[in-house]
Amino acid sequence: MTTSELIDDYFAILDIDHDKKISRDQVIELLRALGKAPTQQQEEAIMREVKEDLVGVEKIRQLYKKCEMKLPKDLYDDMFGVFTALDKEENGQIHEAELRQILSVLGRPLSNSEVEAIMRSATVSREGYVDYKEFADMLVKEYPPE
């Protein structure tokens, strides 16, 4: 399936009234669904460019091509570096509470429901620790390949 076909398919899912438009608020959601992971700064730049309340598929294609966004797999080293820096005991684990805090404040802060959804997929030990290599691997694999 080509990128253009993927964009069309994902766009159609969000276009619930079939008017060939999605709301401005759905643009970032659609780009993420296509496997992109824009930073907060990139999101802001995209939203400055999207001036209209309703957006057509052509605009999405332009934004997709124009915006150089890293895929989650490209962010792996950055994630791993943050986790390693917080690993005071150097045992490859961080406490679940620290992980929740990281997810809710660093980069593009996630909402409580987004953090909860991610944490449901994480393996937490009886002692309340998460193996951060396993966790980073899980996050990267959750996203579809480009």
Rank of each mutant, 00 (worst) to 15 (best):
L30G: 05
T3I: 15
E5K: 12
E90T: 07
E134C: 03
E89Q: 12
S104K: 13
P109C: 03
L71A: 08
T2N: 11
V27K: 05
K88P: 00
S125K: 04
A117I: 00
L31Y: 11
Y10S: 09
I7S: 03
E43A: 05
E96Y: 05
G81Q: 02
F80P: 00
K21E: 08
S104P: 11
S121A: 12
S121E: 15
L86Q: 02
I60P: 11
D137H: 11
K21M: 07
Q42T: 06
V124E: 03
V55K: 09
F135M: 07
E43Y: 07
E29P: 04
I60C: 08
I102V: 15
T84G: 01
K65I: 00
K65L: 04
I28D: 10
K36W: 04
L99H: 04
K59E: 11
A136Q: 00
Q101S: 08
K141C: 03
K66F: 10
R48C: 14
A45S: 09
V55I: 15
S125C: 07
E90H: 10
V27Y: 06
P145T: 11
A122W: 02
F11P: 14
E68V: 04
Q41H: 05
A122N: 03
K70H: 11
S113L: 11
D19H: 09
D131A: 06
R126H: 07
A12K: 13
R108Y: 07
